[in-house]
Design a protein around this nucleic acid. Sequence first.
DNA 1: GTGAAAGCGCTAACAT
DNA 2: ATGTTAGCGCTTTCAC
Lengths: 332, 332
Amino acid sequence: MITIKDIAKRANVSVATVSRVVNNGPKVGKETRERIKKMMDEMGYRPNINARALVTNNNDTIGLVIPEVLDPFFAALAHGIDEVARENSCQLLISTGSSDKNSEKNAINLLQDRRCERIIFHSKHLSDQELIELSERISGLVLINRYIEELQDRSIWLDNYEGGKIAARHLMALQHKSIAIITSNYDLDDPKLRLKGIVDELRKQSIEIEPDLIVEQTPDLLGGEKAAQALVSSGKMFSAIFSYNDAMAIGAISTLEDNGFSVPKDISIIGFDDVLLSRYSRPKLSTLSYPIIEMAKQATHLSISLTTGKTNYKGQLKYLPKLVRRESTTER
Amino acid sequence: MITIKDIAKRANVSVATVSRVVNNGPKVGKETRERIKKMMDEMGYRPNINARALVTNNNDTIGLVIPEVLDPFFAALAHGIDEVARENSCQLLISTGSSDKNSEKNAINLLQDRRCERIIFHSKHLSDQELIELSERISGLVLINRYIEELQDRSIWLDNYEGGKIAARHLMALQHKSIAIITSNYDLDDPKLRLKGIVDELRKQSIEIEPDLIVEQTPDLLGGEKAAQALVSSGKMFSAIFSYNDAMAIGAISTLEDNGFSVPKDISIIGFDDVLLSRYSRPKLSTLSYPIIEMAKQATHLSISLTTGKTNYKGQLKYLPKLVRRESTTER
DNA sequence: GTGAAAGCGCTAACAT
DNA sequence: ATGTTAGCGCTTTCAC
């Protein structure tokens, strides 16, 4: 590998000068600059990022902590970050495995080992306090999908509670009175808030949800199938389902139809997230939008502005889901 | 940030000794080792990977070059790599944007700048020769979804041609004689090979595909919709569709049903890839499996074994798609 | 078993 | 405008 020294020698200048042209620094003669530049790509010089990082403590990397990359939701999140990162010539470094407290700590540690100053953290297991402490040590730390008051200008989040309410209003407007709920069995804020939102809003109209009609499962396709199976087997009546997310909703539809129920004729169902596929499911899924890509992009801008001293981020911090009405919900 | 020096000072030993215990090196007294270890996590010491990388030229990173991370296929690829990488305490570094020759070069350069020795490369635009040259400079370079004879023990690939043939046999077994094809409009080997496979196999039974019934589109949901629209508008008759991938197939189903055609009653359709969602589409999609996660994992093992001197990789290199028969294909 | 010291490739004072 | 030099934090000979 050819280094800055090789260039310096070949060009009869000092390494300092070469370094200056590499970094587009000032104080170097126009002629020299051109000469060195030419030499650099003749010799195929590529700066060693590790060496640079060692001295600057910045390696133009943006870290992302998520549970995994296979879930389309997280893939979308990663995608949004990647796009903005590239615009700012940063590379995306993914640290997966944030499925419990320890793995979250571990994931963030790995990023710190790399002296990664910019981190988008999808944390669901660390305490507020722990995150506050982390934020003091990591200047570019941004939380996504989580709101902490003390860190409110570093939190990009969606109002899940309001989302639940919006779904409730939609279902009530369609005259549904007996509503089942398929929710996640993970002990997290998101499902709780969505659930609370719908329950609170229904209660305003004196509609109560039967406890038997609230079923918990893993928040994925398979979980949706199982949940729907449980609902069907219970023998209870209901005309609509609120699903924690689209994946569960699509899984549920699959099971419902297999059991002879037509969606939405017999049962309406509304999802949450508006993943790409909800537009292509049969029937097309009514859902609540979760503008995760946009949020991810903003998080990245925020993180970058945090680390470049310009604390001039004026973007949005809180997002609201929007009702996306398609075919899976209809009048009772 | 606390460094190796701080530990050394505090423990009254030299940095060399500390370095040895960090790396579990030999030649350090049992008692000293314990003492230093204890001190390290008391003080919360974390080695600086950049510094280490500078001297060892290895930063325990595994690079991945793909066009983007949003596509579920590439997300799955990334996921497989990530899993094996983590088992080997490597971090996944994603370099996206390999959508043309220049961006592929650029993506791989960025990884090289980071002195990343292990790279899984999904290359569709660089020439065989260019890749061969690259492989000489990057000891852990592995190609995925591409076969190059000279690099055959570093290529993990799927036999697309055979895949086309398998689909053809399936459709013929169901008595279909007039078959339409929805393929990708990207100038790549994969669509060409799949197309050639099906055409060759049909021809064996003297079935020719009408040129009007071969339509090219972007290989995604929207492309599938447009392609199906074109097919429907053409007014030509056909009883089955071979789709380049599942995304297009699902998009096509959407359009077909919107136009009053029932799948598979009126028209059978077979996809390619067996993405997670094909199991949950309505009707469930018949398709050809593309074991991309498994392939990605093997690619990672291969890359790691390439860089650790043990060239003892004895895993699979070539993969065959398998017919996954579900509901979207039926007898004519 | 342990330490001293050189050096990885680069940046950033500080000279000139 | 250009050069000299001292590190950045670590690994790795080579001595002892």
